[in-house]
């Protein structure tokens, strides 16, 4: 009887570990996504405005806009490392 209970508990712990991992991975992508979004918001708006004024700076504008986006890639990498 006691043994059976113990086995179930171990399985539950394992399952809950998996769940925690999944939660962590989700948080890593989600939070970095929000972070990148917030950071790109201002830059993107300014970049679009500047490009409308002068098309030649499109390359520079794109470059500046995507700089914070690396954060979310880091988040994605971290979550992949957590999951696998």
């Amino acid at each position: 009887m006691d043994l059976a209970t113990a086995i179930v508990t171990v399985e539950m712990v394992e399952a809950s570990q998996m769940g925690m991992k999944a939660l962590g991975a989700g948080l890593a992508v989600g939070l970095t996504g929000i972070g990148a979004g917030v950071a790109e918001m201002g830059i993107g708006a300014a970049a679009v405005g500047a490009t409308a004024e002068n098309k030649d700076i499109f390359g520079l504008a794109l470059l500046l806009t995507v700089i914070p986006e690396t954060i979310v890639i880091f988040g994605l990498v971290v979550s992949l490392l957590i999951l696998f």
């Binding site: 690396t70 890639i73 880091f74 994605l76 990498v77 992949l80």
Partner: peptide, 16 residues
């Protein structure tokens, strides 16, 4: 470091 890790998007975006 950040630029080298930035290339991991090649794998990460593909995996998603």
């Amino acid at each position: 470091v950040s630029h080298a890790l930035s290339y991991t998007r090649l794998a990460a975006v593909g995996l998603s």
